[in-house]
């Protein structure tokens, strides 16, 4: 088991290397650089000046040289400086945003798990019941409605009309501390969290339902019943663990899906996370920031898959990596 985890982490290294090439390559392929937008904006500045700037920033060097410079500083933990925000360091820009996005993603994942799995189990226990039909209907809606649209409707109804939840931001007053601040944060995360987790909740609900139904029809469940096990033991001991095996695998990918979805959801709720920073950096062609965020998202997805593999081996004894 430990050997397996260490081996998986070693495999990370070449994957990270490929990731850096892809991130850098995509940034290079994108048209323009940080100075393009500004030279169009301000006709009074001599284009010659911009050219000098480019030369000074090393933007005219051959691409492999630029890559080598970038990768060696990234390897030393230096993500470089933003080209737009007066040269503030990328690390500084990302730091607080990263934490916000992680909170939101984690919160959303919790909502997804806490809602989808119990409803999925119940739907399978009572197929074709009212709740099952309701859940199916909700599932289709959840998958069909785009995130940003659901977010807008949620803001309009729940925050503007009813005033139950704040429409944007992470905190209401800066002065609060301790437990109150925590509650305030959660309060701010509820709408974006639900919006972000909507599609996932719908998907996992459907998966859970069909997995549980599948397992309930299997031979070993008949054996458990024939042994005289109670309904709750059959469902929660014998069925659940087997039904969760494929769900766990999907959850690993879900981390990537959540972070990708956060880009749009954060924008809708003006939530100061990585997503909003990513979008603004892309429009500003602030490539050091864009590359850093892309790298972070890539690493998180790799970690998500590793976690899924580890959980997988804990829950299913047939998969023990040794």
């Amino acid at each position: 088991m430990y050997k397996y985890i260490i081996r998986r982490i070693l495999v990370f290294i070449p994957m990270l290397f490929i990731l850096t090439i892809m991130v850098f390559g995509l940034a290079q392929l994108a048209p323009g650089d940080a100075l393009t937008g500004q030279s169009l904006a301000d006709p009074n500045v001599d284009p010659e000046v911009y050219e000098q700037q480019r030369e000074a920033l090393g933007l005219n060097d051959p691409i492999p040289v630029q890559y080598g410079r970038w990768i060696s500083s990234v390897a030393q933990g230096d993500l470089g400086n933003s080209l737009v925000f007066n040269g503030r360091s990328v690390a500084e820009l990302i730091e607080s945003r990263f934490a916000n996005t992680l909170y939101l993603g984690f919160f959303s994942l919790c909502i997804t798990i806490l809602v989808s799995i119990p409803i999925g189990i119940y739907s399978a226990k009572r197929p074709y019941s009212l709740l099952d039909y309701g859940a199916t209907g909700f599932g289709f809606l959840g998958l069909a409605i785009p995130n940003f649209f659901f977010g807008l409707i949620a803001i309009y109804i729940l925050s503007i009309k009813l005033g139950w939840f704040p429409a944007q931001g992470t905190m209401s007053a800066p002065g609060v501390t301790g437990f109150e601040a925590f509650i305030d944060r959660i309060h701010h995360m509820i709408l974006p969290g639900i919006t972000l987790g909507l599609a996932g909740t719908a998907t996992y609900m459907r998966y859970m339902r069909s997995e549980v139904l599948d397992v309930l029809g299997s031979d070993y469940i008949r054996t458990a019943r024939a042994k005289g096990m109670s309904d709750s033991s059959v469902l929660y001991k014998h069925t659940l663990r087997n039904a969760l095996i494929p769900i766990i695998t999907l959850m690993g990918f879900e981390i990537g899906v959540l972070l990708g979805g956060a880009v749009i959801t954060e924008q809708v709720f003006q939530y100061p996370g990585l997503g909003t920073l990513f979008l603004s950096s892309v429009t500003n062609r602030d490539y050091p920031v864009v590359m850093a965020i892309a790298m972070i998202l890539g690493i998180l997805i790799l970690i998500g898959n590793l976690l899924a593999d580890i959980f997988y081996s804990i829950i299913d004894p047939r998969i023990r990596y040794d």
């Binding site: 829950i315 299913d316 004894p317």
Partner: peptide, 19 residues
């Protein structure tokens, strides 16, 4: 079930809970 009447099935490969 299991106490007064017990039953053995055809497929031993799938009759035991794998986990």
């Amino acid at each position: 079930r299991g106490n007064e009447i017990a039953m053995i099935f055809q497929e031993p490969m799938t009759a035991l809970n794998p986990v």
